[in-house]
């Protein structure tokens, strides 16, 4: 028996997200009195792989193959299922992100394992296996029972505390078995934003809505994000209007984020917007309308004109940071 976690890398490095997943897998392994094993696909150096051990992975399966440089759902699922069988994994853990959503359902069919997507806690019971997950675009939770012998979970981002442990991990190279039929998609081109904090990784997100009035007025918002070390986001109409790039759109139909701090500037707080940001730990709203629904979701707020408030906000952050 074991708990298997798929740890994604980005250009050879793991992010906080992978460590969160390993910490979660390790905690389930403890509940089950067994061990957590990780599988990594792609070119990751040994030193980097070893880091997974610091969060409790006992064994790390390293799969390197030029053909697997970019995500391909079919072969990735095959590899993970092969490792799961080899290690007799009962529970498999993925991130609830683009990659996890692409691969986990395929693995679940291979292993005939029930899937719970977007889980936010450790299982509340092991027999029957019960776990809490988000439903109705994050408006509610469900306690779901997985009836099959094997289980696949995708963990909602920022929902489990990262824990370092004393642990010696072994690294094992794993050579999967493939056929040509597994490679029927091909990545032709990769366009990645570099040198910017990614929205889905950011601890702090500063977001603007239609209340920002026009695209030229975004500079102070970007400056606030910069002094806070955060990323920028926007509401849907803002990206639809082309004021901001589509990558910044958050909400039910955009990106779903869960930073520590979400600052909503000139955003009304429509239910579809909140669907993508309500899991943020702290929400701050600035809006001229004291009755805007965003204030119901917010922890802190200022009723006022964002254009007047932003310069003061930036100054205050600089001062408070300087005070240490």
């Amino acid at each position: 028996m074991s708990v298997l976690v798929y740890t994604e890398n980005w250009d050879g490095k793991f992010k906080k997200l992978s460590f969160e997943l390993v910490s979660y897998a390790k905690a389930i392994a403890d509940q089950l009195n067994t061990e957590a094993v990780a599988v990594s696909i792609g070119n990751v150096e040994e030193d980097e792989l070893k880091k997974l051990g610091n969060y409790g992975a006992k064994k790390i399966f390293n799969v390197q193959d030029e053909k697997l440089k970019n995500l391909a759902n079919q072969p990735y699922a095959k590899i993970i299922a092969q490792v799961a069988e080899k290690e007799d994994a009962n529970v498999l853990v993925f991130a609830n992100n683009f990659t996890g959503k692409a691969v986990a359902p395929r693995v679940s069919v291979k292993l005939k394992a029930g899937l719970a997507g977007g889980v936010i806690e450790l299982p509340s019971s092991l027999d029957p296996f019960m776990v809490k997950r988000k439903v109705f675009t994050n408006k509610a939770f469900a306690n779901i029972k997985i009836k099959s012998e094997k289980k696949v979970l995708t963990l909602f981002q920022n929902s489990f505390e990262i824990k370092e442990t004393e642990n010696a991990a072994s690294i094992e190279n794993f050579t999967p078995e493939f056929s040509d039929a597994d490679f029927r998609t091909e990545v032709k081109e990769v366009n990645k934003v570099t040198g910017k904090i990614l929205l889905t990784d950011a601890e702090i997100v500063v977001s603007g809505g239609r209340g920002m009035k026009s695209p030229e007025k975004w500079e102070p918002l970007e400056e606030l994000a910069e002094v806070l070390g955060g990323a920028t986001a926007c509401s849907r109409p803002v990206s639809d209007e082309g004021w901001r790039p589509h990558e910044e759109h958050v909400g039910q139909t955009g990106k779903i984020i869960a930073p520590n701090l979400y600052i909503a500037l000139g955003i009304s707080g429509a239910i579809q917007h909140l669907g993508g940001v309500s899991s943020s730990k702290i929400i701050v709203a600035v809006n001229t309308d004291k009755d805007a629904p965003i204030f119901e979701a917010a922890d802190y707020g200022i009723v006022g004109d964002v254009h007047k408030i932003l310069p003061q906000f930036i100054e205050a952050v600089k001062e408070v940071k300087a005070e240490g």
């Binding site: 679940s108 005939k112 394992a113 029930g114 899937l115 719970a116 019960m130 809490k132 439903v135 408006k139 509610a140 939770f141 469900a142 306690n143 779901i144 029972k145 997985i146 009836k147 099959s148 309500s278 709203a285 204030f295 119901e296 979701a297 917010a298 922890d299 802190y300 707020g301 200022i302 009723v303």
Partner: peptide, 18 residues
């Protein structure tokens, strides 16, 4: 392979501090 046991609403949020 799965079954919903029950549902929960998130705990009500404390009022915003203005």
């Amino acid at each position: 392979l799965t079954e919903y046991e029950n549902f929960e609403m998130p705990p009500p949020k404390a009022a915003v501090k203005l």
